[in-house]
Design a protein around this nucleic acid. Sequence first.
DNA 1: CGATCTTTCGAACAAGTGTTCGATGATAGA
DNA 2: TCTATCATCGAACACTTGTTCGAAAGATCG
Lengths: 222, 222
Amino acid sequence: MPSEPQSKYDQKLVHVLKTSARVFADKGYHSTSMRDISRATKMSLSGLYYYFKSKEELLFLIQDYCFSTVIDECHRLLTGVDDPVRRLKLLIENHLNYFVHNMSEMKVLSHEANSITGDLFRKINIRKRRYVDLVISLLDELARRYQIKGVDTRVATLLLFGMMNWSYNWYNPRKDVDVAGLSNHVTRLFLSGFLGDTALEAGGFEAGRESHLAREVSIWEQ
Amino acid sequence: MPSEPQSKYDQKLVHVLKTSARVFADKGYHSTSMRDISRATKMSLSGLYYYFKSKEELLFLIQDYCFSTVIDECHRLLTGVDDPVRRLKLLIENHLNYFVHNMSEMKVLSHEANSITGDLFRKINIRKRRYVDLVISLLDELARRYQIKGVDTRVATLLLFGMMNWSYNWYNPRKDVDVAGLSNHVTRLFLSGFLGDTALEAGGFEAGRESHLAREVSIWEQ
DNA sequence: CGATCTTTCGAACAAGTGTTCGATGATAGA
DNA sequence: TCTATCATCGAACACTTGTTCGAAAGATCG
């Protein structure tokens, strides 16, 4: 996500954000003191406040940066793809891929969503709502195309996010299946559940072979 | 869960637990001070410590009481039921039913799982592990019976818990579908996803008609 | 060098934290 | 009524919290 030439300031800010995210993920936002952050970043306590003006803004910056990246990459991936099944598949893969490779940030995003208040909370929530709405409308289109009836797409959407976001509670990259496998589990489980198996092979869905992820091992065929 | 004659002490303890759970659910465990609890329960600050010996033990008691109830009721429901599809269906219904009717406690259970440490944490985790293992073995049996291959049942189990537990983040009983509808969504989504639609009607699964829940409205047929 | 930013820091503050302790009222059995 | 146990409380303690402020060091450039 870097690759652009960043100022010394930006580089250090990002370093602080990443380090803080790790500490927040480990101990939880409220149990982490600014002195913990100071220790982890090897900066003085007061020095931190040059980069943000409150602990809450630090949390906001982490969440905002994280959310932006996921959403931007998601839109980048989806442009040009028309088939809704493929679109959903890509979205799930993108979400989980970022999740697994940035577990601290995503844990903070998932777990500390309500540790933020006021205007900052509102800002984050606008992003979140847009992301959720994207999935809802995607499911709406799916339901329209495949004549699915009687399904609350909002509920289905949030159940899908539940599957994905809850993973910060249990997913262990060293013991569990890898990202591609996880994506396949979620995609297959959700899609065939949602569509009732009517149109899985349609839409070019074949055991995740054409994923954008580097490592691809289908766990569904064998 | 009451119905047994409780001592004055027990009654008051339960009242404190329920009230505290509400406050913890609203503000979060760490952001809630013992003075907040004191205010909500209308007891003096020091008076609270007659019922538990630390804030953390208070959290433990809430989680322990909550977990026991869910698990006990689950075992009660499952005894005598052999068909694994029906068993899973009942388990999901029980979980979500308790979830929706005790949202504060379940939010505390889901969200504050790591706010507890040491021995108390270990105790809670034993219960949790047993509950998870129950579902895993249930999926194992399902997979065996219906010849499902290549699915990591642990992953599938935790995705299922993700769907259910994440709901504390979004489920609004006044706006969303009711408990029965929610259960049906989850059951249908997960089961037909997991089984790949091979054996849904087998095992007596028909749009949730035979649920143990009082109010039953299938959203899948119409 | 000297001047002007940018970045870092030590020390301190005011507020809030969980918990303890000794004492007081309530309750019930003798 | 005396007594022993249960239940409650006010006041205080020791400690941690996020944040501020003024000064100092580093960098940049004429």
